[in-house]
Structures are given as C-alpha cells and as structure tokens.
C-alpha cells in the first residue's frame, strides 16, 4: 500500500483552501435557481399562454442534457463568440481575463432551475385548491395569495427534495474543473503535480465534499424539524 499520509495532508489543506469557491458557487446557484424555478413552475401552473408551453418543452428537453456536456458546449461557444460579441457590446475586457466560473454559474443555474421547477410543480399538486380560494375570498390578489398562503405551505413538502437537489448541485459543481476553474478537486490535486501521486489528492477532495454534504444534511434535518409544525394533527374533541 503506497499511500502517503503527508501528501494526503497537503492535499487536504489545499482542498479546504478552495472549499469556499465550491460553497459560493453552490450556494449562489441554489438561491437563484430556487427563485427562477419557482417562477417557471408558477407560470406553468397558471397555464399562462405561450410562456407555459415554451417552458414545458424547454424544461423537458433540457433535463436530458448532462451537466458536463453543457459545460463543454457553452464553454466552446463562449470562447468562439466572445471576440465578436465583445466588439458589438463595446466590452474591452480580453477573454483571458474573464473568469471561466461565469460559464459554470450559467450552466448550473440553468440546469438547477429546471429541476427545481419540476419539484415545485409537484408541490403545487400537494396544495388543496381551497387554500387558493380562501386567499382570494378575503381579497388577497394572486401574488399575495401565492407568497403568503401557497409558497409557505410548499416548504415542508419541498424540503427533502431540495436537500437532495442541493447535494446534487454540490457534486455537479465539481465539473467546472473541466473548464479550468480551480475548485475542491483541482485544488486538492495542486500539490500532487509535484509528486505524481494523485490518489491522495482525490481522497482528500472526496473527504472535503463529504463533509460539506454532511453539513447540508444537518441543515436540512434542522429545517425539516422546524417547519411544518402546523401539519401535525392532534386528536380532536
């Protein structure tokens, strides 16, 4: 067994140094995708003409595109078209100074919004129609009914699924390494470049991801405990 603990340790430290990159990417993507996904799902629920059909087709097809393919594809499109588009928009930043993580954000937000929108669509099915009517009956318009009555009741329904989505997103963020973004995995490998032994680097990376994942599960558990208090039924007299 040739596993060097010292190079493992170096890799671990290096991986942790880049953990914030991954966490930031994951967190921002998740929040933005929650908003976009909810908007898409709501548009589809209310069957708003034209938009719902477009989204229906787009989401269904887009969910068939793997993240890795999307990353490589958008990256090559970006690199090919950048010069011409920059000219048109009078952007003076040269492509070498554009952080490729922007493409990562784009890819991940697009993909996660689609899967979140599917979860939210499912959650709509779990809400009793009378909740909408009750909101309307006291004069709350559509927007207020959605934000004050419907969405809050979706939270306990969505939590387990969202937790899974978030962990999936964490793992998908790993793929931005394919377009030269230094994140946890590539960060862990930086020391290995000197020693030719990659195993320690990958194991260190796995450990850091695992820890963050456990952190997400803890947050999810606490969130589930604190929501949906109103769902628990007490024997009535």
């Amino acid at each position: 067994m040739s596993f060097s603990v010292s190079s493992f340790w170096e890799s671990l430290v290096s991986a942790l140094a880049y953990a914030p990159v991954t966490i930031k990417l994951t967190a921002i993507t998740f929040v933005v995708s929650l908003v976009l996904g909810t908007i898409i799902a709501t548009i589809r629920y209310y069957k708003i003409p034209v938009l719902s059909q477009i989204f229906a087709v787009f989401v269904t097809a887009y969910l068939g595109l793997p993240t890795m393919v999307a990353i490589l594809l958008y990256n090559i499109i970006f690199m090919t078209c950048y010069a011409d588009v920059a000219n048109v928009l009078h952007i003076t930043v040269p492509i070498s100074e554009v952080d490729p993580i922007i493409i990562g954000y784009f890819v991940l937000i697009l993909g996660t919004s689609c899967s979140v929108s599917e979860s939210v669509r499912g959650a709509f099915r779990g809400i009793d129609k009378v909740q909408f009517e009750a909101g309307y009956s006291i004069g709350l318009g559509k927007f207020k009914t959605l934000t004050r009555v419907i969405y809050p009741q979706m939270v306990p329904i969505l939590l387990p699924g969202l937790q899974n989505s978030l962990i999936g997103l964490l793992k998908a963020s790993n793929l931005v390494s394919a377009i030269s973004v230094i994140e946890i995995m590539t960060g862990a490998l930086l020391p290995s470049l000197l020693y030719y032994s990659y195993l320690e680097g990958y194991v260190a990376a796995a450990l850091v991801y695992w820890l963050i994942g456990i952190g997400i599960e803890v947050i999810g558990y606490l969130a589930e405990k604190n929501s949906g208090k109103y769902l628990k039924q007490v024997a009535t007299g």
């Binding site: 009750a134 909101g135 006291i138």
Partner: peptide, 27 residues
C-alpha cells in the same frame, strides 16, 4: 364580501389568530 367555505378553508400554516388577522393586515 365575506365567504365561509363548506370545508372551512382556513390557512393551514397559520394559527387561528393569524388566520383572522391576515385580511385585516394584508388587505
């Protein structure tokens, strides 16, 4: 107009007091 539903139609995620206050505050 006020409306009383056959199946009560209370906001499931709000307390009794919050249910009654909702319209007063929001509307």
């Amino acid at each position: 107009t006020g409306f009383v539903f056959q199946n009560y139609g209370l906001f499931a995620h709000k307390t009794v007091l919050q249910n009654v206050m909702e319209g007063l505050v929001q509307v």
